[in-house]
Amino acid sequence: MREVAALKRTTRTRLWRYGTNVAIILVLVALGIAADWGVIEQNFWNPLGVALSDGNWGDLITIGAVNTVKYTAIAFAGGLALAVVLALMRMSPIATLNWIATVYVEFFRGLPALIVILFMGFGVPIAFQWYPPGGLVGAGLLALIMVAGAYMAETLRAGIQAVPKGQTEAARSLGMGPMSTMFKVVLPQAFRVVIPPLTNEFVLLIKDTALLSVIGAEFNGRELTTVARDFQSSGPSSGTATSLIQAALLYLVITIPLTQLVAWLERRQRKATR
């Protein structure tokens, strides 16, 4: 102990960190040796399921992943359009517009997206005998648009308010009306500010499309999670979680580049504003 105490403080800290690393690695290696890899492979990476031909990959990618990206794009575009309207309403001097938008945003931000999807998929059609275009998927997408619009409206409003007041004054002093000032001067600058948070919202939406699996879809309209769930009950690796692991990997292939893109955009913006 005396030798340890005699060491310099920085040396002791370094030794302590080194020892912790070694201990954690030893535990991991022990777990790896103790684990029954046969069982794990059978249930989570079943050779029949992950086979390149006749496995799950074909439908997971060409139907599931493709639809997931497609639905995300639709929900994002629709949500963004709704968000622009809501954000403008929230900043409107007309009290009722302001009030309606505020209630809408608070309402849909406070609800689980799943409730809204079930409501649009099963509640509204039964109550009003009205079926959204696109069937159940259409209803689910409408629900995602309604929820995403509420979130993005707040992001956009913050972005619009971050544009200096002098910009509006300059445009108005040139004789530009409130609308062309908003769409040609303020919004283009607001969008620059909100591109990173909106990309984040896009990533959240990719994951939220998985909720559509609760309302089902026709065979070629299934998104990634639905396809993976179907492969759990039928197909080459049925009865195992293999298809879920595969779907998870495909989600990561889509989302990780996007989150990296967000990080890069944020770094670039910090540099630009300095």
């Binding site: 910009q167 040139l174 004789g175």
Partner: peptide
């Protein structure tokens, strides 16, 4: 008022050029 403003040029202390 937009028509009136379009006939009155204004220059600001902070320039207020459109940065985009």
């Amino acid at each position: 008022v937009d028509d009136v403003r379009s006939r009155i040029g204004m220059v600001f202390q902070q320039f207020n050029l459109f940065p985009h």
